[in-house]
Nucleic acid binder design. Structure first.
Lengths: 216, 216
DNA sequence: GAGAAAACTTGCGTGCACGCAAGTTTGCGC
DNA sequence: GCGCAAACTTGCGTGCACGCAAGTTTTCTC
């Protein structure tokens, strides 16, 4: 598997990354996202503005990262740890749904912030793309490396479907909160994810069958 | 279908867009892409720099648009005009391959430019995403609007696969031209596209079967 | 443990994207 | 034709992303 170079250096990097995204979210919540300069975030995290940009390539990225966290790694891990006796399609779909179902309170009002600002919304949706590579590795693992291209395509497709689901979710949400004050997205994201992922199930299972046939 | 508001206004817009991307490519070829400022492109096209940014949101976009042209529309049209008696998977795959096979001379050295600069390479690869919406409409058409979500997911997946294929193509190309002077990408893009799209065929055909069953 | 190499941070400079608020052109109904 | 509304252009201002070339910290090797 992928082992990170565990040293003092790596620890500091993770700490800095964490400090930056935490600071970004906190400031955005306190002052509203338009009143947060990159310099403010950098200062709050105790690094130079230039360093901020070594970690995040847009202001939105830092804020969104605070709530998406390490989701990409978790999705991949969740796929990997499902037993091999459920089909690939089911394994992937359930793993994704699990990781995207509301883990509880932490980012409740952060989501409000995100739905409110188009730029943040877009960044949040695009962040789904980050599951592509880890997920690709996990799928390749299950397919037995017979064809790395297939795993990559499937992972990319899943990521695309997730992106669409998130987009749709925030879309209808925003639409439903027109007049009243902001409304929390309560339409069922899991249902939406399943709907969007369902069309890919035949491709996932077909790939697995092919791999099995080749291997045996 | 989608009819464009055909008026003087629309003509001018297309003319401006065309002028901008043509100018962008010409200047990039003449001087090298790093010696072209946005202001230069705008001036060459006879508009203000600010207007340039109303059409393209990055310098790379304009250059790449000069060679990708209206590919997104052509792909959708190509799918639409295939006879319904070939499977959806075949229709889509062949339509895509057709539109991405070298149309001849026009952008031969433009591709050299693109492979050379990472920023241009990325933009070129990302431009594949623009087929997503038109292709989604075309697929929805064939599926008979039973489930618009399915069409969108499939289109997004195809776009993702194309993106991977292009990336791979330019990747190996660049790698193979390390020491010698720049080498034209000659690895078979059509083959690569077919390889990347093949895993999605089961999903495309399954969707079509479902649609057929629902309709009958 | 000392010294070199690699990784990371930072200040600086440059070009750029984009919101905003005029000003201008096009489209449309009467 | 006339005039109004909508679409588009443009100048300006602001914040930002990122290359580059020091300077600093961590790691590696002997």
């Amino acid at each position: 598997m992928e082992t990170r170079p565990t040293g003092l250096r790596e620890q500091k990097k993770q700490a800095t990354r964490e400090a930056l995204r935490t600071a970004a979210l906190r400031l955005a919540l306190e002052r509203g996202p338009d009143n947060v300069r990159v310099d403010d975030i950098a200062e709050a995290a105790g690094v130079s503005p230039r360093t901020y940009n070594n970690y995040f390539s847009s202001r939105e990225q830092a804020i969104v990262a605070a709530i998406t966290g390490e989701r990409e790694a978790r999705v991949a891990a969740a796929v990997a740890e499902r037993h091999t006796d459920v089909g690939l399609a089911e394994a992937v779909i359930e793993a994704v749904v699990d990781q995207y179902t509301d883990p509880g309170e932490p980012g409740r009002d952060a989501l409000l912030l995100i739905t409110a600002r188009p730029a943040l919304r877009d960044e949040f949706v695009d962040a789904a793309a980050s599951i592509e590579h880890p997920l690709g590795d996990a799928i390749a693992q299950r397919l037995g490396d017979t064809d790395r291209h297939t795993a990559r395509v499937l992972a990319a497709s899943v990521a695309a479907a997730v992106r669409l689901a998130l987009g749709q979710w925030l879309q209808t949400t925003v639409a439903s909160s027109t007049s009243s004050g902001l409304v929390l997205p309560s339409g069922s994201l899991p249902d939406l994810l399943r709907t969007m992922l369902a069309p890919l199930a035949p491709a996932l299972d077909a790939a697995e069958r092919r791999a099995g046939r080749t291997a045996s």
